[in-house]
Design a binder for these strands. Structure first.
Lengths: 113, 113
DNA sequence: CTCGTAGTACGAAGATTGTCAAACCATGCT
DNA sequence: AGCATGGTTTGACAATCTTCGTACTACGAG
């Protein structure tokens, strides 16, 4: 099977554009311990991690739910890589929309920024 | 009744100490349009405003609820002044706990910081 | 003392949220 | 083809949240 060395198509994932990211949604997304931990882990150099490698204290479906909330709020970007789904922080875009916000949140979480 | 020129005792209002303020609670408190607006109004120079002068698009009881959420999260400090209740941002303490957080949120709300 | 004003307390209704299990789908490997 | 793995979907449930109206309390003014 031809594999161009790129990501498989998979299903399309909805992402808001940078301009559509709303502060309220971002704050809401970050106001949960599980999601705050996901974000911290991503910021702690674990960019492009598969969902499974987060070892969250919740079930698979709950995990899916939290990643979706983060994605739809515009906090992370996700893409398929084979059978797993990778996530990364949308740092630059968030910095553009809400300068200093993520940095403040991450620092409050004890993440080296 | 002797009136020393100070605030009336009123009922005691619960406020978390600076060290007890949790990031998650603050984010949660800010993740609501009504409360975000209260905070913005307070930051926009309307320090020490009585609840009533906010002209919020909700009923009195709902208003009380939102102010309490903000107070219990440690975002605002409230005290009685006669029959009305004054509120002010706990800016310094928040800056101590989560440097840059409020500033980022307020700027995202278009408030001059 | 009486009245008006500012706010609180107490349900209650309705929406949203976090959680799970079970069934399902997609990809990659053998 | 068949299977294992990683993730999704659906439906359910309990907890929490936002909202309201009504009844109540506290203070100040007349």
């Amino acid at each position: 099977m031809p594999h161009t060395g790129r990501t498989s198509p998979g299903r399309q994932l909805e992402h808001p554009e940078a301009a559509q990211i709303r502060l309220e949604s971002v704050l809401s997304a970050l106001a949960d311990p599980v999601r705050l931990r996901i974000v911290s882990d991503l910021a702690r150099g674990h960019e492009d991690m598969a969902c499974i490698s987060f070892e969250l204290p919740v079930s698979k479906s709950t995990s899916t739910h939290h990643f979706r909330v983060l994605r739809e709020a515009g906090v992370i970007r996700q893409y398929y890589e084979g059978t797993s789904r990778m996530s990364r922080l949308r740092s630059e875009e968030l910095e553009e929309c809400f300068p200093g916000l993520m940095e403040a949140v991450l620092r409050a979480q004890g993440v080296q920024v």
